[in-house]
Amino acid sequence: MSHGRREDVANVGSFAFERGGELDLDVAYAEYGDPADPTVLVCHALTGSQYVAGPAPEGVSGQAAGWWDALVGPGKPIDTRAYHVVCANVPGSCYGTTGPASEGPDGEPYGPDFPSVTVGDWTRSQARLCDELGVDTLYAVVGGSVGGMNVIDWAKRYPERVERIAAIATSPRLDAQCLGLNTAARRAITSDPNYGDGDYYGGPEPDEGLAVARRIGHVMYLSKASMTDRFDRRVAERRPDDLDDPSARGFPYRDVASYLDYNAERFTERFDANSYLYLLRALDEYDLAADYNSDAAALADYEGDALVLSFTGDWHFPPEGGDTIADAFESGPGAAVHRVIESDYGHDAFLVEPDRVGPPVRTLLERGASAVTTEADRQTTPDYPRVCTGLLPDA
């Protein structure tokens, strides 16, 4: 059996969304390894894709392609020689699973008529995909950022179907500061003259608004220390010809501005503005304790192992949120451990520092959560390539 990637789209039939609306749902996914082996489900972050490892097709670029290539593959922490690995694109996205840009029954894109999406909808769509693939029990569910919310939602919603989870750089809910910044990002998109009412397909797209929204996101993914280290107040080598800012006359164009402008422009080439709105809203509205009296009550039925990883420089999903998740798991019958990793990088450390993430994930899969102890685990694994050294990853 080949351990390379296989791609497909599964139609899971009529799908009722939690906040209302129902449609025929396609779920695009990639799988690696032998389906006869234990299955590990990997949950992608906000604008990620199902292409967790290896190159992606044309139109899927940046960190949507091979975004955890250092962790998934033969001999890697999520070893495709030992595990059947599945990663599914979530509803509302634009990488093959049905979303706002997908063609509806009338032959036109759904656009703003697409139903509101929740993290719970992502989890339920993945469960339906697992049913289609004949996978009843998941050996593990692993993911970071909002993908980590997706992970803990699996433990909450389908505790009997999951044996191990790894929730990385995540939180049981967003705080007010992040909600405020995400509100500003949405306003940037909906205020773009090309956005209209969201039915912009076939005409000019709201790229300027989407680019501003993504600049806000990029700043959220880095720590203050890492931004100082990477950019400080250095001046960019080249000033853009189309810099339309009269207040800038006589002043420098700085590295940090150049960096954000470049990455924002690249992002608009690969992502749909409506999808960004829908997925950002799902992130904002997730609350682990929803429909329960507490986080602990939400996870009370989960009996498996739980690994929670946080990073000290991550103010987007700070370690305090990891503490809350770990405490909730620890109050239940399963084994749980929370490791806080020293890193100045910021939220995206879970993508760009695989040497920090890989060892504890490997230990969880091979020996269980109780075996994940100290940074000494790093010494037992090969060196990892540092990924995305030139471009900021898309969390």
Rank of each mutant, 00 (worst) to 15 (best):
Y139L: 02
E269R: 15
L280F: 05
R230Q: 15
R281M: 10
I152N: 07
V146F: 01
P206F: 03
L260W: 08
M227A: 15
V27R: 06
A10V: 13
S310C: 10
T363P: 02
G33V: 04
H3R: 13
K224L: 11
G75D: 10
P319M: 02
A45M: 12
R378I: 03
D131S: 12
I341Q: 03
Y384N: 00
A335G: 03
M220V: 00
A335L: 06
Y158R: 02
W67C: 07
D305I: 03
D79T: 08
L307P: 02
H3D: 00
S61L: 12
P246C: 08
D284I: 08
V162N: 03
T374G: 10
T381S: 05
A211Q: 04
R173K: 13
T374L: 00
L391D: 11
R367W: 05
C87Q: 04
I341W: 06
A65L: 13
E103I: 15
R281N: 12
R81A: 06
Q126A: 13
D255Y: 04
A28F: 10
S116Y: 12
D383A: 13
G143Y: 00
P354C: 00
Y384R: 06
L279T: 08
L391T: 08
P112D: 11
R239S: 08
E330L: 08
T137G: 07
I78C: 00
D192S: 07
I341D: 01
